[in-house]
Design a protein around this nucleic acid. Structure first.
Lengths: 346, 346
DNA sequence: GTGAAAGCGCTAACAA
DNA sequence: TTGTTAGCGCTTTCAC
């Protein structure tokens, strides 16, 4: 009687024996590497299918690749990220690579470091960092250890590629839209950046700067008015409270993110202001809920899917050639006008 | 001159040499295993710090554990999942385990299989399946290969643990709430389950059944009315259209999910119905957007954080003892009344 | 084109 | 308590 094999997983050795070839041959077939005749490939493929063999990624990783790509998200809650993920997985679907997401605790630099370290420890072949919080030096350190693409953060580097949305142009779209409706007193609610080292690289800073430039370009330099809070619902609520306390209120508010606009709408509703009758509100990100009927928020749509797709493409290129010149891609956002913006009261 | 070490990563051998001990000793310290004196531990710890050593997870995985937990989500877009993730990572934060999320393409059984296979290939120590679509046999197969906890799917198994919300009780909460306000004609919009094999195990089926039972318990058996569409905004819109076409409309709608309620609200707004003046609407999941001012949707809150926390706890127990008896946990949801429900017109 | 053999970095038996 | 040694499953020279 045969000893009852205790659920041992099929290995490359089993495949080699079953196909009557060497393990080297099997390995070559697995990697589509040079040095295996068509007949051999066929034979090996058949054995793989018959045995239901699946390579052990850990073992592969010891010498070669793990065929694993890590994506680090600062905050899974942000409804903008799924678009990026879809773009990445879409591009990678046809390849052997598998994507795993690392949950970076909401706005927590420590958690981000932990996740990226964990990915490096696990021998991931490449990493996509989405809107990372880490200082630039840290990003370059990561990139020196593993092929890296940084998404949603401005500022170029020689060691990693970047894919961003043109946040400055996006802010212009909003300001131009509001000015086109007849608004002059347009206030921007921004996310206050605490860390000066990464400051200019963050999208929020770019949006604020885009707001300033667009206002100036329209001859509204005098009207430039920025309230600093944070990109949260709470931040929007506080910002709106500040505006409500003024004697001369703006006729339109450009919130730096949709979630901020939610807080603004809450505050205005509480104060009995009607939107857009008394005041217009616009957001940024075109999150899922912006489209919901009761909200119907004018917003800016970042090309999320395209961003992810390009990030994955650049990462594959960098995995293939770690020393290629770094690329910087800037994609264009579009305005999605909805029912929270209208001409000001005459 | 020394040869410029080409960025070689520090290994256990380097640590052992630097601390003047054997690699076994280092390994024991890493795993807090038995058989290392305090002095030795201290010496090794120091060497680890001085060299900045981090163990290679792939190599560890070849013999022992990878210290990696995989979480499979059916759809990253569902705003209910972040709560679960937080619960899981919270519980695991104090341990050596790292969580990675596998992006299961929205409602795609094939994608789910691909992700789970990938996790097994990568030697993950445990897997949490959130509301999986796979047939039961497949779940048991996965569980036979790696410690598994299934979340958000009813139906017990001997090989995996389950953590669910009491969806039947949740449905009762909604029906009781509406009936308490004076409603009798309460319609439920359900997700139509195509696959009969998993049918009864899915939360949507439980919610529909809970609705029926609650109606009967209130003596409203005659009024039981279920519209079958899907748990999407589109599904809600279609379901509402069907109701609008009737001569005798319900006075309240219980949507099986918040996202369904969004579609319902859209349709009612288009038809000029006011909510809750003309008709009340309730959802399920208490998603982030349900709380937004302009929406303010009455909903059912699942104990997401608690679900995740317990799932992680059970998984750790199962990793420690693969043959322990399987556990089934059912947590209680709560009702969150908001402004979309009110007494019917007299 | 093919395969034997030497590792990759770690853990687990086993000896000392 | 400590160290020696043999793999884990794969990839990669390097002979043939």
């Amino acid at each position: 009687m045969e000893p009852p094999a205790p659920q041992r997983r099929v290995t490359i050795v089993d495949v080699a024996r079953h196909a009557q070839v060497s393990t080297t041959a099997v390995s070559k077939v697995l990697r589509n590497a040079y040095g295996a005749s068509p007949e051999m490939r066929a034979k090996v493929r058949r054995a793989i299918d018959e045995l239901g063999y699946r390579p052990n990624a850990a073992a592969r990783g010891m010498r070669g690749q793990t065929y694993t790509i890590g994506v680090v998200l600062p905050d899974i809650r942000n409804p903008f990220f799924p678009e990026i993920i879809d773009g990445i997985t879409g591009r990678l679907a046809e390849t052997e690579y598998q994507v795993f997401l690392g949950p970076g605790g909401c706005d927590d630099e420590k958690a981000e470091a932990r996740v990226t370290d964990a990915m490096i420890d696990r021998g991931m072949d490449g990493i996509v960092l989405v809107a990372p919080l880490s200082p630039r030096a840290r990003l370059e350190h990561i990139a020196s250890l593993v092929p890296t693409v940084v998404v949603g953060r401005h500022g170029h580097s020689l060691v990693y590629d970047t894919v961003t949305d043109d946040d400055m142009a996006g802010a212009s779209l909003v300001v131009d839209h509001l000015a086109g409706l007849g608004h002059r007193r347009i206030t921007h609610i921004e996310h206050h950046e605490t860390d000066p080292t990464r400051s200019a690289e963050m999208p929020n800073a770019q949006r604020a700067e885009g707001y300033r430039r667009a206002m100036r370009a329209l001859g509204l330099a005098e009207e430039i008015d920025i309230v600093s809070t944070s990109y949260t619902q709470q931040g929007g609520y506080q910002g709106a409270q500040e505006l409500l306390a003024r004697t001369c209120r703006p006729t339109a508010v450009f919130a730096g993110a949709d979630i901020v606009a939610m807080g603004v709408l809450d505050a205005f509703a509480e104060a009995g202001l009607s939107v857009p009758g008394d005041i217009s509100v616009a957001g940024y990100d075109n999150t899922t809920f912006a489209a919901f009927g009761p909200i119907s928020l004018t917003s800016v749509d970042q090309a999320g899917h395209e961003i992810g797709d390009n990030a994955a493409r650049l990462l594959l290129e960098r995995i293939a050639d770690r020393h290629k010149a770094s690329a910087q891609l800037k994609l264009s956002p579009t305005l999605v006008p909805r029912r929270t913006t209208a001409p000001p009261r005459p």
